[in-house]
Every structure is written in structure tokens, then in C-alpha cells.
Design a binder for these strands. Sequence first.
DNA 1: AATGGGACCTGCGCGC
DNA 2: TGCGCGCAGGTCCCAT
Length: 266
Amino acid sequence: MPELPEVETIKRDLERIIKGSKITKVSVYNPMVIRYPSVEEFKKELTGVIIKNILRRAKVLILELSNGKALVIHLKMTGQLVYPGDGKNSRVTFHLSNGQSIDFNDQRLFAELRVLDDWRTLKFIQGLGPEPFDITLKQFKDMLKVKKTKIKPLLMDQTFISGIGNLYAAEVLFRSGIDPQRRAQSLSNQEKENLFNEIKKVLEEAIYYGGSSVDNYVRLSGKPGEYAAHHKVYGREGKPCLACKTVIKRISLGGRGTYFCPKCQK
DNA sequence: AATGGGACCTGCGCGC
DNA sequence: TGCGCGCAGGTCCCAT
């Protein structure tokens, strides 16, 4: 569930509250989430280091450490970072020198934690398409031009553009008035421009509100983000469209639940 | 190249 | 009340 706005929110929270802290001890309660290196090495690499810098690439958090390595965290569906932690339900706890701790929680155990010498060499990172805020309208149009696939799965393709997931793809397409089943190539110039602008606008708004708390996402404080109150279509199957009152439909696209207004989105 | 399906997991809500 | 089932969606992998 955490997409670009949620991960960016956690990144900013970490920057404000955790940056400069020293990790004194790491407790691993479920080794499944430690993907590299071994659990013992993972603990050893992190013990006694200072968190120097916090970065985000797509939906991935990167904590640069004083030993030159990086703790790379992909929250996937249900991962959470909570500070101060209480240790309940946590898969991994990072104890800090101030006596507090950060809990890493993950109900479904999809998340991935790694300590790497160079996070830039991670295959997933290398394959990422550009961040939405790093491209121009012209570049975006050129990217779409060669794609025959349906627009919604394309927006969620991290090698095409990075950071957009199922929820924001639905919201962005609604606000652009584009049917999620349309072929990318078939979009008019005006539609491409609307889409480009709405991607940036929706992501910016969502960051402003601290992300969307549907399912498990919470901010570092453990409190929810407030953007779900501003959703127009996601999760609204059977309810009236907020613009035209037509019943919102849910179909499956690329194996994912896809919400849209059949009247507003052409 | 695009598409569909399954896999990884757990907890929730539903129908019976 | 209790149980089985489908579903949630980020990413990878395989088959067509």
C-alpha cells in the first residue's frame, strides 16, 4: 500500500526525528524480512552506526549510515516504521542511544530489509523509471508514445515511471478523465498533458496530507495520514461518482482492482 | 512486447 | 458461533 506519497511522508518524518541517531542494538523477531546479508551480519553491520542521511527512490527508503553502508527498506504492502516503538507486533526493533526504539512492523511479511555497500547497485533500483517530479511534459509524452499497453498498468509499472501504485493510478486517471483501459498510445495531446499535471498534483496533495491510510499505512508517529478523505474513486465501488453521481465501477486490470467512473472517464 | 496467471504472506469480512 | 473462502496489492517470475 505505501506508494510514493506515503514513503515520502515517512522519509520526511525520519529526517526530522531520527536523523543523526545512533543504533545501539537490533532485535530480529522474524528473520524472513531480512533479505541481505545474513541476520547475524545484518545486526552486526547496524550496531553502533549513526543514521546520517535519509533518501527515497520510488517506494524505497534508504538510510545512509556512518559506516558507509545503507539500510534499504521496501515496505511493500503492510510494512510500517513506528517511533517511538513499543515492541508489540514488531518484526525488527532498532534500539537507539536515547533509550527509544524504532519498530519495523509487517503483517504480511512481504517487506524487504537489506544492508548494502552501495544501494545504487540494487537491481530493482537500477531498473526504475524516472520520478514523476523529474520529467518534463515533453519527456512524458515521448515515453507514452511508444507504449501499446493499457494506461493504468503502465502508470503502475515501476520501470516506466516510479512511485505510483494502484491507489494513486486510480485517482490520477479519474482526475484526468481518462478510462483506465485506454491504450497509452491512444491518448490525445490534451489528455497526456492533463495526466502529467494530475500525477504531480495528486502526489503533491497526498504528501501534504501525510499519505493515505487505507489498510496498514501509518506515519512514523503511528498516526494515520489524512489523504484518504480526499479520494475520489479508490475503494468507492457502487457509490455515486462525486462529480456526476454515476455508480462507480470496479473491474480487474492487470490482476488489480480498478475503480473508475464510466461516465467521467472516457 | 504485452498479457494473464501464480507465487510470496496474513488478517479481515463475508456467506452459510 | 465457527469455518472456509475470497480478497487486499508490490513485485517477481513464468507461460503464452
